[in-house]
Design a protein around this nucleic acid. Structure first.
Lengths: 156, 156
DNA sequence: TGCAAAATCATCCGAAAGGATGACGACATC
DNA sequence: GATGTCGTCATCCTTTCGGATGATTTTGCA
């Protein structure tokens, strides 16, 4: 995480230096200050968001494993259950959290590109997760993977 | 999530406006550009981090894996319904029998070629049916078509 | 601290899927 | 007999998927 701060500082200094330099080059532009401000703002806001996401990601995984709630099945109201993913089967199949996450998005009909956008990762990454999940499910197509996932209680 | 973006934009514009205004007030400062850049950078970086945190926090609540330990209460046999396809909706959408037939096979994870073999028709025919069904369902992909079909009660 | 698992990204290539369009025969209906 | 629907098949072209493989970075845990 220290590396993040370091990169942060470096990029910041570099950007400001660049700005300064370019201003000496092209002083002609009228409202350059506002433009620069906006540019810097956007860049650093994006960077900040990215950093924030990165920071909290480690928190996520920790928080995930804790909650174990015992719920007796109440013999009625079959449609109200929030769907309990079969974690046991997921474990035995070796399907990771990320893979299951992508599987559910596939089941909802999203393309790899759309999934990549939603999860803030590259399409290649999505494809990799797909391939591994398909392999573990013994599926050759995404439709088949969805079908298998539902059979195994991994997907709602 | 959209609210975040909106707030983001508003704050951004406000900040830039403020900067511009203040510059007209205190033009005396020498290296104001760099200072402003740095200020904006820091502010927006902070804001971005805050936003990132906020975003993931909402995600966290979803992320809490509620490990439901199912206490088996064999109340009823819910799987006895043979599934009645919603013919009314099928009618209104103009989906033909053949198209629905192929949709169910898609939902089971078969490829176009496999479907063609099972139905004793050519792969091109299957693709035509697919295209028409997708159009009627407003789907762009077969996974999406399956999802829509289940939503509409056309598929089990 | 160091290792193993997980997540990320990339490239190349072939297969599958999808869009657009045209055509033809069977059948029912008007 | 004209019209319309349905099922069938085709071609051309683009996009999307999937497989194989290698690499780097995080992260979790011993």
């Amino acid at each position: 995480m220290k590396r993040h701060a370091l990169i942060f500082g470096l990029v910041g200094g570099l950007l400001i230096a660049t700005l300064q330099y370019t201003e000496y080059r092209f002083v002609i532009i009228e409202h350059s200050v506002e433009l620069y401000s906006a540019l810097v703002a956007i860049l650093f806001a994006g960077f900040g968001i990215w950093l924030g996401l990165r920071i909290t990601r480690s928190r996520d995984t920790i928080r995930e494993t804790v909650v174990v709630r015992e719920v007796p099945v109440p013999a009625e109201a079959p449609a109200l259950e929030p769907f309990a993913p079969n974690t046991a089967r997921q474990q035995t199949l070796g399907i990771t959290t990320r893979e299951l996450e992508i599987l559910t998005l596939i089941a909802r009909g999203f393309s790899n590109r759309e999934i990549a956008t939603q999860l803030f990762v590259s399409e290649n990454t999505v494809k990799t997760h797909c391939a591994r999940a398909f392999d573990k499910l013994g599926a050759a197509r995404r439709t088949q993977a969805v079908q298998r996932g539902k059979e195994l209680g991994l997907l709602p």
